[in-house]
């Protein structure tokens, strides 16, 4: 049984088809990259999976259960965690409190006390290397620190599936390599299936994902093992904007 199964997902905004008939299966333990230029529907797909809005068509199954119409707050305790493209910290709360929120309402929801959540939070804050900042208001962190905090917050949810949205954008290449290593380690230690979404940092995808789905204009262009997908001529066309796109900007 697939951990997550998307069947023919379509999401429209007015006349714009943001996600067009996308199907995807993710097995537990996989590392998947979702790649595509700006505006290809990646974030919308994430929002549909995490329940920000329902799709117009198609169904979503998580561990075999149909969650298509489940509200967002019921999905997180089932084990779907995510980070945001632009970090969304609870600014007035400290880093520790932010991460504790993850522990409190994730899959451990109802099983741990507030104090225990604080301890869990400490653990993950240390894991991402933010221990020096744990009592700071999260709003005062730098953008990269905010991203790290979001990862800690999502990990504290003890998710089965972690959706990462541009976790490495804006990072120094050296830090990206560190992050890739970190994610690989986390995946083993915590037994998490990770879906990582990137616009164009191929270095991150190539180093991390075993399999890649490329999206273009809302639709699935290809779904294949990483090396094969990234060398596919259609994918290269999408990024260089040759036949398929008319001046689609790959810079994002």
């Amino acid at each position: 049984m697939a951990l997550l199964r998307l069947e023919n997902i379509t999401k429209r905004f007015g006349g714009l088809v943001a996600v067009n008939d996308v199907s995807l299966e993710i097995e537990a333990g996989e590392s998947i990259g979702i790649v595509g230029p700006n505006g290809s529907g990646k974030t919308t797909l994430y929002n549909v999976i995490s329940g920000v809005y329902p799709p117009e068509q198609g169904r979503i199954f998580f561990e075999g259960k149909d969650i298509t119409n489940l509200p967002a707050h019921r999905r997180a305790p089932m084990g779907i965690g995510r980070t945001f493209q632009i970090p969304r910290p609870f600014s007035s709360a400290s880093v520790r409190e932010n991460v504790a929120v993850g522990a409190m309402f994730g899959t451990l929801s109802g099983k741990v006390s507030v104090d225990e959540c604080s301890e869990i939070a400490e653990h993950y804050i240390e894991l991402v290397g933010l221990q020096a900042h744990k009592d700071k208001d999260s709003g005062t962190l730098t953008p990269v620190e905010k991203k790290l905090m979001e990862i800690a917050r999502a990990l504290a949810m003890k998710p089965k599936l972690l959706l990462m949205d541009e976790a490495m954008a804006g990072m120094h290449p050296r830090d990206i390599d560190d992050m890739v290593k970190f994610l690989k380690k986390i995946k083993e230690d915590e037994d998490i299936t990770i879906v990582s979404m990137v616009e164009h940092i191929m270095r991150a995808v190539a180093g991390f994902a075993e399999r890649v789905m490329v999206m273009y204009r809302g639709a699935k262009l290809i779904d294949a093992p990483t090396a094969k997908a990234l060398s596919d001529p259609r994918v290269i066309d999408v990024y260089l904007g040759r036949p398929t796109g008319e001046g689609e900007d790959a810079e994002g």
């Binding site: 920000v52 997180a76 609870f90 600014s91 994730g106 917050r153």
Partner: peptide, 14 residues
């Protein structure tokens, strides 16, 4: 607190 700071993110956090 989470609701006050970012209600949509709060929902996604469960």
């Amino acid at each position: 607190t989470a609701i006050r700071e970012d209600e949509d993110a709060a929902k996604v956090m469960g």
